[in-house]
Design a binder for these strands. Sequence first.
DNA 1: AAATATAGGATAAATAATATATTATATGTC
DNA 2: GACATATAATATATTATTTATCCTATATTT
Lengths: 148, 148
Amino acid sequence: MRLTKAGEYAIRCAMFLSFQGMDVVVSKKEIARCMDIPAQFLGKIAQQLARAGIIEIVQGSKGGYRLLVPSENLTMLDVVEAVIGEIYLNDCVVRPDSCDRISTCSIHRVWETARDQLRETLRQANFKSILADKSCTIDLMEAMKRST
Amino acid sequence: MRLTKAGEYAIRCAMFLSFQGMDVVVSKKEIARCMDIPAQFLGKIAQQLARAGIIEIVQGSKGGYRLLVPSENLTMLDVVEAVIGEIYLNDCVVRPDSCDRISTCSIHRVWETARDQLRETLRQANFKSILADKSCTIDLMEAMKRST
DNA sequence: AAATATAGGATAAATAATATATTATATGTC
DNA sequence: GACATATAATATATTATTTATCCTATATTT
């Protein structure tokens, strides 16, 4: 019941791009290096972020990724779900036929509540406010230095 | 980011035992049959529930499982964590060394909040109140009929 | 003692996640 | 246009986790 690495990497990538701002194309290599993401794997993740409309992929020399969404409108929910799909904690919430018990059972309702809360918490977390936290930006800048 | 089948099965098992009451020994076979759980797999899950002090395993002919905890004190959190371990949504919350960014970063705090909420919601859900919901008990009784 | 039921260790089978290799395509520079 | 550079896309390999079962041992009832 944990976030996958792909999800974690996607968040790191979104954080880095948010930090750079919307008009900057950042190369895959640089993101991978600074954020400790396997470069090829980042390629896959970027495809999913692009399909979700979160980033734009720029090909060719001087290519890379560019953020398409203002960081105050970009939430952790958007980024995570772009990569791992819509979050749900128990199958039966989304596919009632996965269990032949009735879907009104209160067990289902508990999972539904838990899921809604989780999604809401991630929806509240936008990258602008995350970066407003000094400890995050300090950390980012150190990561950039380290990987030069 | 989903509950494992083992977790789902554990909940079904706990629900069945809660329905039967604390003083009844229910055979593995019967639980497996009524709750659609592979019998051998249920054996493993029962071991974990027993280790957590939730059920008692009775060996020998006429053996089976007996609930040790009053259903009003037994929560979904207890049952789920007995089987899948302590819930956490992102590695870095529990093992800060899994990511070399500082643990005070607000990303971490979001995951921490989400995790706390999730655990709290599951802690609120005790099996007595779950069974107080008619649709659950009706469903249980039908499952028992079906599998005769 | 025989029958019945679960325990516990080992292992197999299935699925999912993570990562990489390779070929193709797009862009900028000379 | 040719070449260098960077990402795309498909395929494949690797690893980890989850799910399930087999088999021998042990406990209990009759």
